[in-house]
Structure formats: C-alpha cells, structure tokens
Design a protein around this nucleic acid. Structure first.
Length: 308
DNA sequence: ACTCTGACTCAAGACGTA
DNA sequence: TGAGTCAGAGT
DNA sequence: TACGTCC
C-alpha cells in the first residue's frame, strides 16, 4: 500500500520533468525553435490536439461569477462559443485545421487518473467551503479546478465542427500521438499541442501556444524535430531515451538526474542501458522497478489510427 | 558554483469598442 | 496542467 | 492596449 503512494508521487515529478524539455532545447539546439506567427501558417494543414481546449473554454469564457455561458434552458455553451470562434480564427488566417480528440487514456496512466480524481474531490470540497464562507473570487477560482468537460460537451463540439465542414479525428488513445501520426503520414504539416511529448512521438513540427489568446504574452513557437536531432546529435530513439530520463508518464525518473545531467549522460552513453551502467549507485540509486524499456514502446509505437 | 527538488502561486478564449 | 520563482539540500 | 461582453 505505501508503495503505491510513492509511485503516484514519482509520476507527478516526472510530469514536471517534461516541461524542462523546452529550455533544454533552447540551450542545446536553439535552431530547432523559432518564434513564428499566424500569418506564416497560411495554407498549412495543422493537426490540433484538443485535449485541453474544452477545459480552457469552460473555465475562461464568461466566468466572472464562476459559471459559464448558457442557453435559455440553462445548458452550458462556453465550449461551443470557444470552438466556433477558434475555428473561424484559424480559417480566416488560411489555416486548415484537423481537430484531434482524445480517446481513452493508456492503461499505464491509470495510477495518475486515480490521483487526479482524488484531487478533483479535494477541489470540490474547497469549492463548497468557498461558497459558504469565501469571496466571489474564491468561488470562481475553485470552480475552475472542479470543472471538467463532459462526454456530451465533447460530442457537441465534434458535431459543431462536422457541421462546419472541419475534419475531426477521434484518437483511440492520446491525441498528441495521433497528431504526430498524421504529420508523419503526410496528412498534416504540423501538430498543434501544448505538450512537448509530441516531439517524442515524432511529429516533424510542433506548434505551441496556437491556442493562446494573448500572443504578446504567449508568442507562437515552432519546434522542428529534424533540427532538434541535428542540433543535439541524437537519433530519434536516443531522444526518446532522454525524454524518459526527463520524465514521461510511463516510468519513474532517477532522483538527482535533472535536465542537465540527463542530457550529458545521454550524450556520453547513448542509451539508458549504458547510462545506468555508468551511474554511481550510491549517489544515484535507480528506482526499483525501473521499466525504462517498457516505457519506450508506447512512445515509439503508440496506439493510434495508422496513416502510413 | 551548479544542479535538482519541493512547495508555492497564478492563469488558463475571442470579440468589438473606446 | 504548466510556468515561474523561491529556499534548501546535494554534487 | 485595456476592458466589458459573449448566453
């Protein structure tokens, strides 16, 4: 029982690691990142990872008092408003979006899911408390944490997009993986996602902040997979190993190995097997178990509809 | 001096008008 | 959930 | 650019 607790905590830590990938790329392969703008994407087909979108709409649109926009019979419409206008925005910039919706999360993530639902429950309690004793700001703040898109809202957005003539793909599993597959298969030019995992899944181009309303504060970034490999000298498989060391969803990381050491070790030893062999086990004990080899598979060949 | 962790906080869209 | 920042411990 | 409004 206590062991499970540890695993959940480590999963959390690992997620934190992925975000460090951006600054790592900035330092080690600066040419793989460039600042771009909507106008530069004219005519491009972009596979848009919608995982977070509905949540963003539901929490950002019309939420001054903590509730959403609603129709005459009290049904929430924020997700439709957001989806509609964002799609218009893409189209009027000459961008051809393909919206990719999440399917079931991979089984390896079930531990994380359990933890997430526990957090939701905690947030719900905070919300109830704020409703009784807190300010309206508190209520708005905590209601954002309890918000999540329903199955029905997902289907409504898919229907809206279909009626607008926009292609929609239902990913069997993770949307980022399906986006990468669409790009690798030549169906799309880039993935639009906030998740750096997209590069590990092998998308050729990753666009970040495609969904930010304030382009001054959150400029649009373009990551180039090929230039990333060229700049770091890694093969794609070595890059995946680096991501696993930095922290992915599928296995724990090694305490004390952050972005700097992980990068140096991978440059020197070229694979996790060799890295582990050369680690001082007294300074950097490897987690037990440490299923890094099993972690490679869902990254190299994730569950998704094949496009090749 | 550098690296990593952990605990913390905050913000999360798009439009038109002034 | 991710990004930024801080203090504190380890290398 | 900031801000109020979208239902």
């Amino acid at each position: 029982m206590p062991r499970k607790e540890i695993i959940y905590r480590d999963r959390d830590r690992y997620r934190m690691g992925v975000k460090k990938l951006r600054s790592l790329i900035e330092e080690q392969a600066p040419k793989a990142i460039k600042n771009t703008e909507f106008k530069a994407l004219e005519g491009r087909i972009i596979a848009v990872d919608t995982s977070n979108n509905l949540y963003q709409f539901l929490t950002a649109i019309g939420t001054e008092n903590g509730s959403s926009l609603m129709n005459s019979i009290g049904e929430t419409t924020s997700h439709l408003q957001g989806t509609f206008y964002r799609t218009i925005k893409f189209m009027s910039n000459g961008i051809k979006p393909v919206f990719v919706f999440d399917g079931a999360p991979p089984t390896l993530k079930s531990g994380e899911l359990a933890k997430r639902s526990a957090k939701k429950k905690e947030a719900k309690e905070n919300l109830d408390e704020a409703k009784e004793t807190g300010t309206t700001e508190d209520v708005a703040k905590f209601s954002k944490r309890t918000t999540s898109a329903t199955r029905k809202q997902n289907e409504e957005c898919i229907k809206l997009l279909t009626l607008m003539g926009i292609p929609v793909v239902r990913a069997p599993c993770e949307a980022e993986a399906q986006c990468a597959e669409l790009v690798k298969g030549g169906k799309a030019w880039a993935s639009g996602s906030e998740d750096m995992d997209s590069l590990a899944f092998g998308t050729k181009i990753l666009l970040r902040n495609l969904t930010a309303s304030d382009q001054k504060k959150n400029p649009l970034w373009e990551f180039d997979h090929e230039k990333l490999l060229y700049g770091t000298g890694f093969t794609h498989d070595q890059f995946i190993d680096l991501c696993i060391l930095l922290g992915c969803d599928y296995c724990e990381s090694i305490r004390g190995i952050g972005p700097v050491r992980a990068f140096e070790l991978m440059q020197k030893h070229k694979s996790i097997e060799e890295v582990v062999k050369h680690l001082d086990p007294t300074k950097y004990p490897v987690p037990v178990p440490f299923p890094f080899d099993e972690a490679r598979e869902p990254i190299q060949e994730p569950t998704c509809h094949p496009c090749r």
